[in-house]
């Protein structure tokens, strides 16, 4: 239900620039995984394969946590916030739709960027 509301909000942004601003604003809410959950060096099992933003995902007590090591990994941070805000505390983590990445970032996202972000979704689902 949360996700439906979010996607409904997102769909209101038909202008590319406004949509980007909306996603950048989301990324600004990104909070890195707290030290009580994980500390550097992070474990390989939490690393998202093929993500050039060096993203990591954890799940504890049904809450998702993320780290994005590339300071320019702004899309990865936006997706982390979207996943946390819409799926943490729900029973749907293992059912996160992989199509979410294309729905949020659009079909013109590059193959590399898209695959890295889809990798974040896949890892979150596998942990769920």
């Amino acid at each position: 239900m949360k996700l439906e509301n979010f996607l409904s909000d997102l769909s209101m942004f038909t202008d590319r620039d406004e949509r980007m601003e909306f996603l950048i604003d989301i990324a600004s809410r990104f909070k890195e995984v707290p030290s009580e959950i994980a500390e550097r060096p992070f474990k390989k099992e939490n690393k998202v394969p093929a993500c050039e933003s060096d993203a990591y995902v954890w799940l504890k007590d049904n809450k998702l946590y993320f780290a994005v090591e590339n300071p320019q990994g702004i899309s990865a941070k936006a997706l982390a916030v979207i996943l946390d805000e819409n799926f943490s505390g729900t029973d749907d983590i293992k059912n996160i739709p992989e199509s979410l990445v294309d729905t949020v970032f659009g079909s013109t996202i590059s193959m590399g960027k898209g695959e890295g972000l889809r990798g974040m979704v896949r890892l979150a689902k596998n942990l769920g």
Partner: peptide, 9 residues
């Protein structure tokens, strides 16, 4: 850029 959000950020 490759990342479409970077310029606007």
């Amino acid at each position: 850029n490759e990342d479409q959000l970077l310029y606007s950020s």
